[in-house]
Simulated scan of single mutants.
Amino acid sequence: MFYIRVVYKLDPVTYQTARRIFETATKDLTDQEKSLVADYLTHSTATADEHYRMKQSRNVVLASKLLKKLAGDSSADSAEEGPSCSARGAARDAALASNQQMDVQAAFDQLLRTHPVTLDGDIPDKTARSQTSGRFQRQLYDRWLKAQMRMRVRHVLSHFGRRQPTESRVDAWIRNQGWKSNVPSAASVLKDWRPVGSVDTAVDSSHIQELIHNQKWKGLVVMDIAGKGKGVCATRQFQAGEVVCDYHGPVVTATEGQRIHSSTKEEESGYMFFFRNSHKSECACHPGIQPFGRLINHSHKKANLRPRLYSPAVGGQDVILLLALNRINVGEELLSVVINVM
């Protein structure tokens, strides 16, 4: 203002006068543009905080451009000078958001050094979070909870390994963990369920070991199959890589298997791993139970199961698990490939 008075010898103009002039000049603008100019010309920082508070930096740029245009600056209309105000403002907003995300992540990393996320731990209280970052303490709260939730969901899934449990079973197992808050629901755990863990350690799952022991495999039903006799069909969907059931019976070498097969009557061949359906299907260790694995037919071209032999590291009995080759739909017959598993 002093520069204007001395060089150009003009009368001094107060801020209020300039503001009224520009507000009067906006009479032909849209309501949105008028609002931008009004926000730009707020009386003070306190007034802006209370009444206006432009949350997006591009609004400042747009308002400045409008004021230049009202003052007769033709450069405000030039589109050849570079990206549009909206584009520049959007880029600036994105940069600010990115920087804030980096700041939040840095604060979260610092919080984890003193309050690591654990399965059974309690979330750091507000005092601890504020000591790390008063500005981002709420974001730290949300991130810590989400990280613990992901950890707990993985923990639940790892218990059941490569076999999908029922929702009631998951719910009961979660309740037994004793978690009081930030508890995953069984429905959310099973929503996008997929087999977890290595196929090499599938038999290590306590859930699968229990099923091998009691032979209470769910999602399967024995049916009469046209031209085949007995067979097994799915009553629920199975995911690729999921353990469908096990084959219960003695495991021998391929040579021994051929010898037994050639000397065994057809009606007794059910004691072999692959067999025809006219047979006795009970196993010695589960009298009175008809294991599903012993009734599954085989196929060279339409197989949807593959057998996998698991031998215990120390002692115990070998186990053959039947894993889904691909997704198996409800009503689909289970068919195993014919390969040597010895």
Score class of each variant (00 low, 15 high):
Asn99Ala: 15
Leu325Ala: 11
Gly316Glu: 10
Val337Asp: 13
Gly293Ser: 02
Phe292Tyr: 15
Leu325Glu: 15
Ile320Asp: 01
Gln290Trp: 12
Thr24Asn: 13
His159Met: 07
Arg163His: 15
Gln317Cys: 06
Leu295Arg: 15
Gln101Leu: 06
Gln290Ser: 10
Gln215Ala: 13
Ser168Gly: 03
Lys280Asp: 12
Gln56Asn: 12
Asn326Ile: 00
Ser86Thr: 11
Arg327His: 11
Leu321Glu: 02
Gln177Thr: 11
Phe160Asp: 00
Gln209Asp: 05
Trp173Glu: 01
Glu23Thr: 06
Phe22Asn: 01
Ala240Val: 07
Thr255Val: 11
His300Gln: 12
Lys55Gln: 12
Leu220Phe: 07
Gly134His: 13
Leu119Arg: 08
Ala46Lys: 15
Ala71Glu: 09
Ala87Lys: 13
Ala284Gln: 12
Phe238Trp: 12
Asn182Pro: 00
Glu81Ser: 11
Ile123Arg: 10
Gln239Phe: 08
Val203Cys: 07
Thr255Tyr: 05
Arg20Met: 08
Gln317Arg: 14
Asp171His: 13
Ala46Pro: 00
Gln100His: 06
Ala63Thr: 01
Gln258Cys: 04
Ser185Val: 08
Ala254Asn: 06
Ala79Tyr: 04
Val13Trp: 07
Gly241Leu: 03
Asn277Leu: 08
Thr47Gln: 12
Ser336Tyr: 01
Glu242Gln: 05
Asn277Gln: 15
Ala90Asn: 11
Arg129Glu: 04
Ala240Pro: 04
Val330Trp: 05
Asp49Tyr: 12
Asp49Arg: 15
Gln110Phe: 01
Arg276Ser: 13
Arg175Cys: 01
Ala63Ser: 03
Leu112Pro: 00
Ser75His: 08
Tyr40Asp: 00
Lys146Trp: 06
Arg88Asn: 06
Leu305Asp: 01
Val13Asn: 04
Leu323Glu: 12
Ile174Ser: 00
Ser84Phe: 06
Trp179Leu: 02
Ala254Ile: 05
Met342Val: 02
Asp31Ala: 14
Gly316Phe: 07
Ser299Tyr: 02
Glu332Val: 01
Gly229Asn: 09
Gln290Thr: 08
Asp224Thr: 13
Asp318Cys: 10
Pro291Lys: 07
Gln101Trp: 02
Gly257Phe: 01
Arg19Asn: 01
Asp11Met: 09
Tyr3Gln: 07
Ile21Tyr: 08
Leu29Val: 09
Lys55Ser: 11
Gly229Ala: 09
Thr127Asn: 07
Val203Ile: 15
Ser35Asn: 12
His51Thr: 12
Cys283Arg: 07
Ile225Asp: 03
Ala128Gly: 02
